[in-house]
């Protein structure tokens, strides 16, 4: 039964690097990186196939069904 003191934690599903993740509704990219313990200075984020500039990490809020790619440089030839 839903009572007045029931706490609703709104959860949504997003794809991060091909994996489904449940995160708090309306989380920003900056907060998501923090939760994932990823240093923002070393990664680049793509949201639904568009690059998100670092300056926009704070202001970009995620929605249900978003697909994120978080990439960085690795050794390569």
């Amino acid at each position: 039964m839903v009572t007045a003191d029931t706490v609703f934690l709104l959860i949504m599903k997003v794809q991060v690097n091909g994996e489904e993740k449940e995160i708090a509704d309306g989380l920003s990219i900056a907060r998501l990186l923090e939760e994932l313990q990823i240093r923002p200075g070393r990664v680049v984020v793509e949201l639904n196939q568009d690059v998100v500039s670092r300056a926009a990490h704070d202001s970009t809020l995620l929605k249900e069904g978003d697909a994120l790619e978080i990439v960085h440089f690795v050794g390569g030839g």
Binding site: V16, N17, G18, E19, L36, Q37, I38, R39, R42, V43, V44, E69, I70, V71, H72, F73, V74, G75, G76, G77
Partner: peptide
Amino acid sequence: VTVAVRRVNITDPNKENLL
């Protein structure tokens, strides 16, 4: 020097970075 672009391993993100 050349580098490749790859997904971050989100289950173990604290590995050292090439940069």
